[in-house]
């Protein structure tokens, strides 16, 4: 979704070649390490955009190779881009693997939940340390955009770490409570309670 809209945005700047689009996207998203986009993904997206009439191919310099083709945005494309700008980005609700691990450890007794926390925390801290080091190497006077992007990651890590602290502090309480089980629901329409 965001790759598609990013291509529209980049084309609204000026007409670009396929390879040009790949490089521009990666530069803007924060480098290869941050968002490693495959060329194939770009070209399939371009194809789909062209089919929906949001972009058009520049016929004057058409080529066999997809990276050598040049694209331009259409009026419909501009319309679509405008809509994207004006709708907020939806954040996916937490679907956390660590949470599942922890619940299973609690339910099965196969692993020590505290140890899970420590291992996770060590890893998060390693990542945090890596990002902090990275961040220190950047020059704020030129790479502020990148720094801000790193900050976002740092803050997410920070939030995760705090969350781990919270779990650790309340582990005993969680243990005492029943593990969530599926509700035993009778088939058919739920019975109305007669009053």
């Amino acid at each position: 979704m965001s790759v598609r809209n990013a291509i529209l945005g980049l084309l609204s700047q000026r007409n670009r070649y396929g390879y040009e689009l790949l490089q521009a996207f990666q530069a803007m998203a924060g480098g290869r390490e941050t968002w490693d986009l495959k060329p194939a993904q770009i070209y399939t997206t371009l194809l789909r955009l062209k089919e929906s009439g949001l972009i058009a191919e520049d016929e004057t310099c058409s080529s066999e190779l997809p990276e050598k083709r040049r694209y331009a945005i259409t009026a419909a494309g501009r319309e679509e881009l405008k809509r994207w700008f004006e709708t907020p980005v939806r954040v996916e609700p937490q679907r956390d693997e660590f949470f599942l691990k922890l619940m299973l450890a609690l339910a099965t007794g196969q692993a020590d939940p505290r140890r899970l926390i420590y291992i996770q925390r060590a890893s998060l801290f390693q990542e945090l340390h890596r990002l902090s080091t990275l961040r220190m190497e950047l020059d704020p006077s030129t790479s502020l955009a990148h720094i801000l992007l790193l900050d976002q990651a740092v803050m997410h890590l920070e939030a995760d770490l705090r969350w781990l602290d919270m779990i650790e502090a309340r582990l005993e309480e969680v243990r005492k409570q029943p593990i969530p089980e599926p509700e035993h629901r009778p088939r058919g329409r739920p019975q109305k309670i007669a009053k």
Binding site: Y118, L157, L161
Partner: peptide, 21 residues
């Protein structure tokens, strides 16, 4: 503050007066 601690080479975790990690 985890963000500050992350700059260190080593982090020692203390809980109830003991080193736990």
């Amino acid at each position: 503050d985890p963000r500050i601690a992350a700059y260190a080479d080593r982090i020692v975790f203390l809980k109830d007066g003991q080193i736990v990690d």
